[in-house]
Amino acid sequence: MNPTRKRRLAIVISVLVAAVVAVGLIVFALQRNMSYLFTPSQVQEGQATQYPTFRLGGMVKSGSIQRAADTLKVSFIVVDDGGAMPVEYTGILPDLFRDNQSVIATGRMDSGRFIASEVLAKHDENYMPKELKDAMAKAHENRKIEDTATQDAGK
């Protein structure tokens, strides 16, 4: 084989390898994420039993966060519409970790509790100043009060 052809062959092979690696990475990412996220209610229905480790996704229940005084251990409850799951984690939590925050925890089940090895916070795509958020929350509350007032009046 002459050098030109050899080089061309090397190029073709490297392009093919790159393409295979690329497709492989995509499939790998999609597969892991397709099947490995479960909500607390799905876990309680037993949908996650076949996986030794999986991802648990849901919202941190308000007021459920309990931090140990002397270690980095923290326990909290992740909820969704129809279920709740106690989670235990030891380590540094992301800054966004707080009440009512969406989180994705990776870990395993151990006697009814989810032992997380990693906890990631998931934020939505809404961006707004704090003042606006507060104003919106206030308006929401006012509406709630009005609603209950009208309901009370209707009784």
Binding site: L37, T39, G58, K122, D124
Partner: peptide, 12 residues
């Protein structure tokens, strides 16, 4: 899931 992974894009 009820986790709101992607909401309608909204920015002030």
């Amino acid at each position: 899931s009820t986790v709101r992974l992607v909401g309608p894009s909204h920015i002030e």
